[in-house]
């Protein structure tokens, strides 16, 4: 996995887990890889992975069963979707809009592209 330069690693790992929840790789009430296994897969300090898990716990995406491991919370998919939706609207979209303004892209051209993109599977 290539980590990007700007976001803290523990958040990027959370992103990764959320992505896998969204695409059904990690299913609700199923166990996610242990801190050590994930650290080993990614080459990341286990304490960083733990921080990531702690964060996901606070937003109710995963829960832990002592001595057994971490599991995807029921309803996690909905939670993840709504968080990332908000993130997209609050942070990623403004950046796109900024670029649209900078490059003087006309609104109808923009919407045409969006519509075409939404139609393709």
């Amino acid at each position: 996995m290539n980590f990007n330069e700007h976001k803290p690693i523990y958040l990027q790992i959370s992103d990764l887990i959320c992505e896998k929840i969204l695409n059904d790789e990690y299913r609700e009430d199923e166990r996610v890889p242990s801190i050590r296994d994930l650290g080993g897969m990614l080459g990341v300090n286990p304490n960083t992975v733990m921080r990531s898990f702690e964060y996901l716990k606070t937003i109710d995406v995963i829960y832990d069963k002592r001595g057994v491991g971490f599991f995807v919370s029921p309803g996690a998919r909905k939670v993840v979707k709504s968080i990332y939706k908000q993130l997209f609207l609050d942070e990623e979209l403004p950046l796109i809009i900024k670029k649209v303004k900078l490059l003087d892209i006309e609104t109808d051209v923009l919407f045409e592209h969006i519509q075409k993109g939404l139609q393709t599977p």
Partner: peptide
Amino acid sequence: KIMAEYCLETTCTLISTHQVRDLENLID
């Protein structure tokens, strides 16, 4: 990856380096 997976939770590891990039994400 080996360091992250196989070092014990109870171990204190001290790695000296001047190639910081080699150990990125591992040391903390």
